[in-house]
Design a protein around this nucleic acid. Sequence first.
DNA 1: TTGTAAGCGTTATCAC
DNA 2: GTGATAACGCTTACAA
Lengths: 333, 333
Amino acid sequence: MKRVTMADVAQKANVSKSTVSQFLNQRYEFMGVKTKQRIEKAIEELGYQPNMIARSLKQKSSTTVGVIVANISHEFSTRIIQVIEHSLHQLNYHVIVCNAEDNPEKEKKYIDMLLAKQVDGLIIFPTSTNVNVYNELNVQDFPLVFIDRFVPEVEVPTIMLDNKQALCLAVKELDRAGYERVGILTNSTIFNVAPRVERIEGFKQACRKYGLPVDETFIRGVETGKMTEELRGIFQSHEPPEALVAGNDLVLMDILKYARDHHLRIPDDLAIIAVDDVSFSSIYNPAITTIAQPIEKMGEKASEILIEKILGNKNIEKDIIRFPAALVKRSSC
Amino acid sequence: MKRVTMADVAQKANVSKSTVSQFLNQRYEFMGVKTKQRIEKAIEELGYQPNMIARSLKQKSSTTVGVIVANISHEFSTRIIQVIEHSLHQLNYHVIVCNAEDNPEKEKKYIDMLLAKQVDGLIIFPTSTNVNVYNELNVQDFPLVFIDRFVPEVEVPTIMLDNKQALCLAVKELDRAGYERVGILTNSTIFNVAPRVERIEGFKQACRKYGLPVDETFIRGVETGKMTEELRGIFQSHEPPEALVAGNDLVLMDILKYARDHHLRIPDDLAIIAVDDVSFSSIYNPAITTIAQPIEKMGEKASEILIEKILGNKNIEKDIIRFPAALVKRSSC
DNA sequence: TTGTAAGCGTTATCAC
DNA sequence: GTGATAACGCTTACAA
């Protein structure tokens, strides 16, 4: 497959490469009408397509950004990536998505690869442990935005859910519905993944606020794969919880599966409220009450800040930007 | 952010750029041990990272492939993309994913952009209408693979589900369970999207095979957004269907929602079997019986063929490769 | 208004 | 064993 280059066009149109370049970059202010037409014709006839690689090399910009997601299996991740892709596409940026699978080494490898590919910026769902890598990028002023999770010692703009407020909303709803023995289940908190820790903390605070008992046996960060086991433990207790908050979509699935397999009726035997308004929550029977993240806004904001940084705007808040959650009331609690 | 180049390394190590290049490309056969060490040291100290853009320009290969998906909102799409990304990553290829949103113009625009970016190949869930574009790529021997849908007049390797067999499986199961009045709902067939047409056709054939009545009023390709309306029509009929096949995940959602809102018990009032083994089918109550596509195998095969083509292997079957579906028996029929 | 030439960071050829 | 030097396809001063 012989690609046609600018030189071919130039030759065919009887002009020099630079004139063709001018044309392509819409600088026809001082260009003869006839030259312009000849170039147009030549491009058309040859089916010329500019080579963005060559362009990138010269311009030192690839109009590509990388997105590294900690774990793509959360619906939240895929949806926010879609939003980011959509926003950035409108600005003529392309997106390369990488899935770190919650593995810091993989994340580091991806960062290196994407840098080698000269991406103009990076949006990362960080895995917390690559602090030095992040900081290195940061001191070099490399455009970087975090999403979903913050990293303690790194000053990077971070888009996050207001987890405290989110859980306050959840507990408030549980309280309103009259539940007393309540709990929350999230994925493992051993790596201090911010949303999980914050959600648990927010849950406890809210319980105190609404005067609900805080029973630590129902408040758990559970390792992947051990959820069923954990649930069995919880429901074997003398007084099992009346209501459970699912820390994310995957936890919700585990709870629902357990409930079904053990014939727990929702919400009568067990009320449920889930963080993340996953698509199947409105389909489920009964429909699941959820706490929704403003995915669109979060994705757009992340894109916006990244582009600002790419374009060289220095005065961007390097802080965490928290987005409020919203209660989507359905029938599971 | 000042990037360090090969020249910097060369200078620091007191060698020429070419030697550094040799080093980077593991050609140390004739390289002095000391030179090697000096280069290693210089790279380390400067934190040098090769520039793949420059490399690509020279090598005429970007080690990047594009994936254009017709509609990302199907779980099937996202999952197959994950598989593709995973397979190609192992071969050190990167993937740029684009969502054509079922819009042929958008698809064409993406193809152009990806070509401009010098992707080495393209995996497309085609939107059927860009036949000329596909053919142009094809005559130029540009590495191209279709997935999920075939395009009649284009000779490109195509990975597809064996839809006929899949629906045979579904109908067989319906028959086995004793249902007689059966139907199938898919998305709109006006654009002759292969899977939809084939699934409907396969359904009819299978009904004949198993001696079930073929009632066209229960066999429908429905426009997006009109599913609820259609369902209302179907269930107002004198003898509504006892069992329905959902042509894909989105259709399944619509059916489940309708069933819940109209208090149809599954499977007693309405049995359901869905094509695509979406994650929530095992969670739902009752769990949904599905026809699963071998997503892993399909994604891997697509990646494999694409890479073959990229590497210049000419004798690849340009035909449709059909993958068999599998019944996942649960409780909805 | 258009052309010339240098340069972006690599790799490849061939000379030393 | 190592180093000049010329590409790769484009942009951009600056010259004409």
